[in-house]
Amino acid sequence: MLDLFKLRIRHGKQAIPNIRKAEVLETFKGFPIIDESKCADKCKDCKDVCPTEAIEVNPLRLDLGKCIFCGECEKVCSSGAIKFTNQYQLGSTNRNSLIISSGKTFEQFEEEAVDAKKEIHKYFGRSLKLRQVSAGGCNGCELELAATTNVNFDMGRFGIDFVASPRHADGIVITGPISANMAPALKDAYESISDPKIVIAVGVCSISGGLFANSNHVNRNFFDEIPVDLFVPGCPPHPLTFIHALLDYIGK
C-alpha cells in the first residue's frame, strides 16, 4: 500500500497542461523551410535521394503528403536549401497546401492549412468520436494514435475519443497505404458510420501511399470515391500533430 502512494507521488501530474502551447524537442523533424535561392545550378541531389518522390525541382517543392521526414534531402544538400524545423502543426484540410514551395513560412502555412467550418464546429465541437482503421499500416501511426489517449496527451479532455464500433463514430481515421486485402473491410467500416461523418487520413502511407505507393498489393480506390476531410502528415505523425489538426478542424 505504501508503495502505491510512493508510485502515485513519483508519477505526479503527467498531462501536458496547455497542449496548444506544447513544444517538441529541437531534433524533431517538422515543417520544412525551403529556400530555392540557395540551390546550386542544376543540382537535383535532394530529388534523387528522396525515397518517396516527395521533392520536385524547378521550382523546388516538397510535398508533406509524400514526405517521410527522413531528412535525407537535408543531409545531401550542401547549401542548406531545405531545412526541417520542429514545428509539428502540420495538419491540413487542403491536400495542395501540403506542397511546400520556396519561401513559404510556417505562419503562412498554418494560416491556410486548416479550414475550420462553422458546421463542423457545430456538429463535432463538443464531442467527436472516431473509429480507427489500420489498412496496411506498419503499427507506427497506430501506436502514435493510441498515445494521443495516454496520460501525457489525454485527448479525451477535448471530448475526442476513439471508439470500438463504427456505429458509435462520427468519423474514420485511416492509417496505412490501404493494402488490397483491407480495402473491402475499410469500405464496410466507412459505410457503417452514420452521416454526417468525417474522413481523416493519418500518416504519409494513408495520404499518398508513401513507400508503398507503387506496391502491387495496395488498392487505393477508396480515396477515388471518398474525399478526405483532414490530412495529418508524418511518418508517423507526432500525437501532438494529430491533436492540433483535430482541434483546429473542429474549431476549438
Binding site: V49, C50, P51, C70, E72, S134, G136, G137, G176, P177, S179, A180, N181, M182, A185, L211, F212, N214, S215, N216, H217, V218
Partner: peptide, 21 residues
Amino acid sequence: LGFQHRGIEELFIRNKNNPVY
C-alpha cells in the same frame, strides 16, 4: 492473417538500385 500484406519482399528486389529506399 495477410490483411496487411504490402509486398515488402517484392519491393526490396524492385528497388534494389535505391539504397535509401
